[in-house]
Computed example of a mutant assay.
Amino acid sequence: MTRRIVVVGAGYAGVVAAHRIAARSAARVTVLNEREHFVERVRLHQCAAGQQLRARRLGEVVGPRAEVLVGRVAAIEPEARNVRWSGGGAVGYDLLVLATGSVPDVGRIPGAAENACHIGDLDGAVRARGALAAAREVLVLGGGLTGIEAATELATERRSVRLVSAGPVGADLSARGREHLARVFARRGIRVHEGRAVRRVRADGVELADGARLSADVVLLGAGFTAAPLAAAAGLAVDSTGRALVDAGLRSISHPEIHAAGDAAHVVGSGGEPLRMACAVSIPAGRAAADAVLARIAGRPPEPFRFGFLLQCISLGRRDALVQPVRPDDSPRELVLTGRPAAVVKETIVRGAATAARNPVLSAFGATGAPVLGS
């Protein structure tokens, strides 16, 4: 009997899983996604800054043996093993891969949903691009990787940029990494407000926890993500951020016919803490979820997913970057690579992620002739 495998979500984890299962089995593989194009999420700060992104249709990315259905997934019904979607009715499955990713936690700061932009998805990045086009004063909230990349990308466009962070900016970097960040911020004229928690986002800026106010034409959220809500709504066991709790084979601990990968899954790393939401995790997790599904189709137990970090790569505009080697538990080593060589490494890794998404084994992911994304 032909197995029906449904992959919900077509980010990095989803397309890797779908392509691998379809290429290595006779299963009928269906991908459900709200968009018809693959979105390189790690480039959305570039989109917000006004740069054009290119993309390929999902049919090209997941390969000819996987079916792609474009529409919004309304619900997953584990008891019936159905996925309800806006395109018409329900799609049944024998096994499901949940790869719905994460969304900006706009409710975390009062007023953010109404008064701030974000770059957590393509729609948000496109709206931010429109708001930023005429902005001269920009406030970026968040001192992690997303906030840093957004602030430095925007500062290259001759805007006045301030970065506000409740804790130290680049807290997970080595001392050398933080020193390079400080030099880049100074060179780009980025004003940094560390240790300043935001109480409320207003139409004209932010109000800080100490009562001070910072004005801005645009406030951009660069921190705070939570899992997409489908897992929790379906009744799966989830953590406090909505990520599905999974075993070593990436199977839901409450619904073993469902595997989860990428930002949708709560996976404990080598240091005993949940792996952070990142492209670096999503691609190998998508591959591991696919291999687990393939093992189950073949009647074998899935192999445990093992993962260790190697690098943190942060773009600092188009001509600078910071490559921070890390230990498998994501703690920083002291050595860093900076400047133009780091920018080349960062761009190579980003392009490699797109290549792996299109074909986890061998592929060249060129953008020539591809449509402009978000136009």
Rank of each mutant, 00 (worst) to 15 (best):
A175L: 13
G167N: 10
T156P: 01
G269L: 00
V68T: 09
E40Q: 14
L322T: 09
Q46T: 10
R327T: 12
F309N: 12
R127L: 07
R287I: 10
P256N: 12
G339T: 09
G87C: 04
V218M: 00
F307P: 01
D329G: 06
L311Q: 13
I190M: 01
V126G: 05
A23T: 12
R276K: 14
I297N: 07
A13G: 01
E114H: 02
Q312W: 02
A298I: 09
A112H: 03
A295G: 07
R3I: 09
A237M: 07
L69V: 11
A227M: 02
P110R: 07
D210A: 04
L230V: 11
R57W: 10
A244Y: 02
I258D: 04
S86R: 09
A364E: 15
S102L: 02
R20E: 14
R300Q: 13
R43C: 07
A234Y: 00
V293F: 01
S102Y: 01
I109Q: 01
A116W: 00
G195M: 04
V164K: 03
V138E: 11
R84Y: 03
I76V: 14
V7A: 06
D204A: 10
P332Q: 06
A278M: 04
R159N: 11
R191T: 14
A55I: 03
V350M: 12
F307G: 06
V192Q: 05
Q52D: 14
M277I: 04
S102W: 01
E149A: 02
G9T: 11
A197K: 09
A74H: 14
W85S: 06
A232I: 06
F225M: 12
P256K: 10
F307W: 11
G63L: 01
V201D: 03
Q51K: 14
D320K: 13
A171H: 14
W85T: 14
S315T: 13
P64Y: 10
I297F: 00
R81M: 09
A27W: 04
P341Y: 07
A367K: 13
G286W: 01
R41Y: 09
N115P: 03
T355A: 15
R196W: 02
V16D: 04
L221V: 07
V97T: 11
A231T: 08
D172G: 15
R202Y: 00
V97R: 01
N359A: 14
R351F: 05
V267I: 15
A357L: 04
A197F: 00
A248G: 15
D121R: 08
R43K: 13
C313F: 02
G167A: 12
A356C: 13
T152Q: 06
S375C: 13
V281K: 04
V206Q: 05
A343G: 05
